[in-house]
Design a protein around this nucleic acid. Structure first.
Lengths: 123, 123
DNA sequence: CTGACGTATCGATATCCGTCAATACCTGGA
DNA sequence: TCCAGGTATTGACGGATATCGATACGTCAG
């Protein structure tokens, strides 16, 4: 039995009070904000970009190294990086001629936290 | 400094080997599968459905109690529930005249796990 | 059997999204 | 100054999706 917890619900303190009246524990605004974050993750190309960044030894990756492994055109990769940046999942800083991208762990943790208690399920 | 870990990457054992050659640690197939899961989360209405289910005292919610709190039409809610079910995030079982929906914590944990090491970042 | 009620499907529409070719922007070197 | 190379933007196209009204399906009560 592990079907409760904090799945998509950590802003308010405790919302479990009314037995047979759900009453949407997630506010419209908060749901929309989380949805925007998850939408940025809802694409294989972007997940692979995040994966590449997460395994970078320096925590940063030059944009010039992101085009080839994805097998997509440069404008497409640039577009995906912008989506990730707009969602707050990555940040890019121009260093000379290149742009270096790195993850924003706080934002990733926020979305991860919204998915559950962060305890153990899944063993 | 907390930009590493297992963000979108837990299938293979260790992929950190080549300093300047990312080489996409996430397979095309696995990325697509995770993306499908996150796509199901990329909608405020569906996040609120999950939130309602997660706060249900019995871990289950009657479908008849999901229409009103969402403020959407019944066909729309049914559609969203189907999307969640197809993504493996919820399951519904018909009991008499109603269908009771509950979360699938393993699937939620899988997606949560893909977002990070599960250790501490953020904190 | 028939009506009532919860649920799912169908058809239509408006919008959003991924992708690319072309092109403009920006920075460093000659 | 001009050129080269990495990056971002634009415009266009095809496909996916959110939403609804209408309607079909399933199940219980009478």
């Amino acid at each position: 039995m592990a079907g409760k917890g904090a799945v998509v619900d950590q802003p308010a303190a405790a919302t479990a009070c009314c037995p047979t009246a759900p009453a949407a524990p997630l506010s419209e605004d908060r749901a929309a904000e989380l949805a925007r974050g998850f939408a940025a993750l809802a694409d294989p190309a972007r997940l692979r970009l995040l994966g590449i960044m997460s395994t970078a030894e320096a925590g940063e990756v030059c944009g010039c190294e992101l085009v080839e492994p994805l097998g997509k055109s440069q404008p497409t990769v640039s577009h995906h990086l912008k989506v990730l940046a707009d969602a707050g999942l990555v940040v890019g800083s121009r260093r000379g001629r290149w742009v270096w991208y790195r993850l924003v762990p706080e934002r990733l943790a926020e979305l991860r936290h919204a998915l559950g208690p962060g305890q153990d399920p899944l063993g």
